[in-house]
Design a protein around this nucleic acid. Structure first.
Lengths: 202, 202
DNA sequence: CTAGAGTACGGAGAACTTCTCCGCTTATCA
DNA sequence: TGATAAGCGGAGAAGTTCTCCGTACTCTAG
């Protein structure tokens, strides 16, 4: 199978590249305003191109979303690498997870679904790369927190990322409650005490 | 505004009641098979009625979902009341939250969105009732766990329910990983150790 | 600067979706 | 048994995603 033009590869012709950039910009704006149910037709219209052009550049919504979040993933991973120098490994992990959650929230759940979804399905290579990058960065941060911090050894980064995205999703569902994201993140940090705890609080 | 027939009120005529029941059954089956994107047309077809009939009984997808989950909420709350007699208040809370999560997962996220969403918007009274029932049962269970168990006093039941549903949502997104739901639930029970913990594990 | 090759455009439209309207049917009750 | 109102369901409006293909433009070679 030959590579399709929507796979993240940039086209050669200048007008095509312009259109692609304008589409991405329009899509970002439209998703921002309309939420996940933004119409692709409207995105094309906003970018000043026909629907056909949109679908040649991005074969489906999936490809469009992956293209949008690709850059963000880059930024998040860079931030994660910086956080490896943070004095507190635990705090570093916490900060990074919060950054991911905030980003996912800003993207209105699109990211949550796309970024963490298991790469076993026939997702694009671009998505797999995003997934891989986040996963690798998280592994590094978690590993440090496990060796030099208080993170439990059996903790799995995939689960942790999943949980973080779930929280981001939840906080999107209730945009009225601005503090929800941080409250839930704090909740998973402290945890709901397990019945098998040995100390009693009374 | 007079009460619409889709509000959960059962119609008087026998044929209408039959149709309503068959629609609910068909909807449940269709959502089970097709997931959240099931076509309402197909549901009507499956029930052997026209689309008009479906939309007279349930003005929109929302109403249909609320009708479907209404009965389940009843069951969950009954189970919650039984759990108030459970010897371990903490364990009781844990079991109930797991039941909610499993139910939400079975309903493929429909419930998650509908049941927990803030009732400030113009949701139907039936949905508000569901929300209220779950909330009340949760408050009772959490209260007991706070007074006689290890649950922290500042813990909010709304947050806890939200988190539980978020986890249910996440585990639907990755149906391939059957153990995910329980792993994530366990994760919020133990919690990711906070950097301000006083004891070190070394 | 020009011409040819081939890339990219964008509208028309196919195949779906949700949801509405309204003439006809049929259950109910006196 | 009729009168009456409640209920039915298909046609279709308005929206969506996505495809096809004739036209127009950009790029490169000469």
């Amino acid at each position: 199978m030959k590579s399709s033009p929507g796979d993240g590869r940039r086209p050669q012709r200048a007008d095509a590249r312009d259109n692609r950039d304008r589409l991405l910009q329009a899509a970002r704006a439209e998703f921002d305003e309309q939420g996940p149910h933004a119409s692709l037709n409207k995105i094309a219209q906003r970018a000043g191109v026909g629907p056909g052009t949109l679908y040649r550049h991005f074969p489906n919504v999936h490809a469009l979303l992956v293209a949008i979040i690709g850059g963000d993933v880059e930024v998040l991973c860079a931030q994660g690498r910086e956080l490896l120098e943070h004095p507190s490994p635990d705090e570093a992990l916490r900060i990074w997870l919060r950054a991911i959650a905030r980003h996912a929230t800003a993207m209105r759940g699109l990211v949550a679904t796309e970024m963490i979804a298991q790469p076993t399905t026939e997702t694009s290579t671009a998505l797999a790369a995003c997934h891989q990058a986040i996963h690798a960065t998280g592994t590094a941060l978690l590993g440090r927190a496990q060796h030099h911090g208080n993170a439990p050894a059996q903790l799995d980064i995939a689960d942790l990322l999943m949980l973080t995205n779930a929280i981001a999703w939840a906080s999107e569902q209730t945009p009225a409650d601005a503090g929800l994201l941080d409250r839930l993140l704090a909740l998973i940090n402290t945890g709901v005490p397990y019945p098998h705890h040995h100390e009693s609080r009374k």
